[in-house]
Amino acid sequence: MNRIWLFLPLVLAVTLGVVFYWGLGEDPSELDSALVGREVPSFDLPMLGDKEASGGPEILKGKVQLLNVWGTWCAACRVEHPHLNRLAEQGVPIVGLNYKDERGAALEWLEERGDPYTRVIYDPEGSLGFDLGVYGAPETYLIDAEGIVRHRHVGVVDQDVWESDFEPLYERYRKDG
């Protein structure tokens, strides 16, 4: 009976090894989202540039667009931002969700780096981010003309991610809508 206890660490090590091995093959930017295929959650939040204006899910309807979650505190957002500017110049509509940030810092960021957004939702408490299931920034969602989430990407959207993940879906939903 005492010999069985000698094999317990070996069994635990093998079990952990198998679990970690399965996890190595997972792409962290491909996190499942319960929202894919569902409407954007209801919200009523102020716009970043206008403290008096507010908006809800209706601003994410009417055309196929991206919803980009960003913050001035996010280092990866600095990497992503120039590509978002290029997409906006190409006519891709992008709504920003300024997540858990300071209004002044966010306005300064856009003035210095360019503003690729058609609108920016200001979410200082992270309430919409929470409802979307945001893990952090940047995260980008493809929203169809009816306000349905069609795709989610966690991490930087660069040219490769745009061409492989977003552009085919963007074009498909633009044609369907």
Rank of each mutant, 00 (worst) to 15 (best):
R174Q: 15
G49F: 12
L31G: 14
F130I: 04
A88E: 06
C74I: 09
I148E: 04
A34T: 13
D115S: 12
S29G: 15
L24N: 13
V134M: 00
P138T: 05
L84H: 11
N2A: 12
D176K: 15
D160M: 11
A105Y: 04
A34D: 14
G91C: 03
V134A: 13
H83D: 02
Q159W: 08
E146D: 13
A106Q: 09
E30I: 01
P82C: 06
V36N: 04
L110I: 08
Y122F: 15
L110D: 03
Y141A: 09
L48K: 10
K51P: 14
D115Q: 08
W5A: 13
F20Y: 10
L35Q: 02
P9K: 09
E163N: 13
V64T: 11
R38C: 00
T140E: 01
P138I: 05
T72R: 09
K175V: 13
N98P: 06
E30P: 00
R113N: 15
V154A: 11
V120S: 13
A105I: 02
G17V: 03
L169S: 08
S33C: 03
A76Q: 09
L97P: 03
A53Y: 01
G96N: 05
A88Q: 06
V156D: 09
A106E: 11
R152W: 11
L67V: 12
K63T: 12
R119M: 15
D144E: 05
L66P: 02
